[in-house]
Simulated scan of single mutants.
Amino acid sequence: MSRSSALRYYVLSRLLLAPLMLWTVITIVFLLLRVSGNPVDATLGPRAPESAKEALRIELGLDAPLWLQYVRYLGALLQLDLGTSIVNRGQTVWQIIRDYFPATVELTLLSMLVSVVVGVAIGSLAASRPNTAVDAGGRLFGIITYAVPMYWFGMVLQLVFGVWLGWFPTSLRYTPGLSPAPGFTGLYVIDSLVQGRFDQLGIALHHLALPSLTLGILLSGIFERMVRINLKQTLRSDYVEAARARGIPEYRVVLIHALRNALIPVVTVLGLTIASLLGGAILTEATFSWPGLAFRLYEAIRMRDYPVVQGIMVFFGAIVAIASIAIDILNAYIDPRIRY
């Protein structure tokens, strides 16, 4: 089988796998929420009249057998109906996603940029100086970023740079009393750039600094370890030794000849990092009171807002599934060494 045919077969198989991945996420979320507690008591309180509890139970469909609830839920999802909040009556999950998701997108994109830049820089530096203090420092950085709790690191940055030094705001997405640049994306940085409002761009980045550094630095250890390990192996390759023998300066050998190939596995890690970003966004947004969808999910969990938790989790699951498959396909195109 030729590579082009094998590649088409691989892409098709990954696309066909997407519904199965999403169905698995949907089923797990459905079952976990059914065993996590009674949303009726959480919403109305244990002292509410039994008639009110029964009415809400019927409204939510919780009076039906579990299998029937599951079938009804799948039917609603096939119609792209994620449900309606039981705490904020009349507010659908899609309206919540529309209002809160842009803030999460902005935070995760900047955090991803921070994690890639910091991770690749430290990993490259450590790999180019093996068995030295720099190499040991790179390994230590990877261990620390993996072990440090995200909420603790966020609170440390808040205390040092927000309270003691007063350099950055410690919460919210924009300065209270000021209005961000109106735009169709909901991303303050993008909307400010499009309209040339660099004063508002500065405010948006000022508020983004601490949350994105918290999430980005702690996830950069993933890229640091991947780059350090792969770059060390690449620097021992024959074509790298041949480049050195031709008298090419070491920095050019590392940056141009070795790093380019060492970065190929990083593309694969990007798909896994998206899931980590969304998971870390919950803790980061809760720590910084960031008005994103992950923080809205945290509030829905705290208030036992059953449909909102279910809908947002399915939405996040769909994003992770789609992103993972897209990264796999991209990696298959750029890495000719992959076999299918």
Rank of each mutant, 00 (worst) to 15 (best):
V120P: 01
V320W: 01
L17H: 13
D99C: 02
Y73K: 09
A76W: 04
V227H: 05
L330D: 06
V189F: 05
I229N: 12
A300L: 06
P249C: 01
D63V: 00
Y298D: 14
T43G: 00
L140H: 04
I86Q: 01
I96A: 15
S212E: 06
A55I: 15
D135E: 14
V117T: 09
A258V: 02
T287H: 03
T273P: 00
N331A: 13
L82G: 07
I319K: 03
Q200G: 01
R236C: 07
G196I: 00
D335K: 03
E285T: 09
Y251V: 15
G154M: 03
I229F: 00
F30Q: 11
I264R: 03
D99N: 12
I319W: 07
A181H: 00
Y70S: 10
G271E: 05
T214C: 14
T24S: 13
A332E: 04
L109D: 03
K232Q: 15
T24H: 00
V194W: 13
G90D: 15
L113D: 04
L235N: 01
G75L: 09
R228F: 11
L231F: 11
A323M: 14
P291G: 04
V254R: 00
V116M: 05
A332H: 02
I143N: 14
D41E: 14
V25H: 02
L68C: 00
R72N: 15
F141G: 10
V267F: 05
A243H: 01
R47T: 11
M226S: 10
I122V: 15
G142N: 05
M1Y: 02
V148Y: 13
L44P: 04
L208K: 09
W94S: 13
Q158W: 03
L16T: 09
S2H: 02
N230R: 10
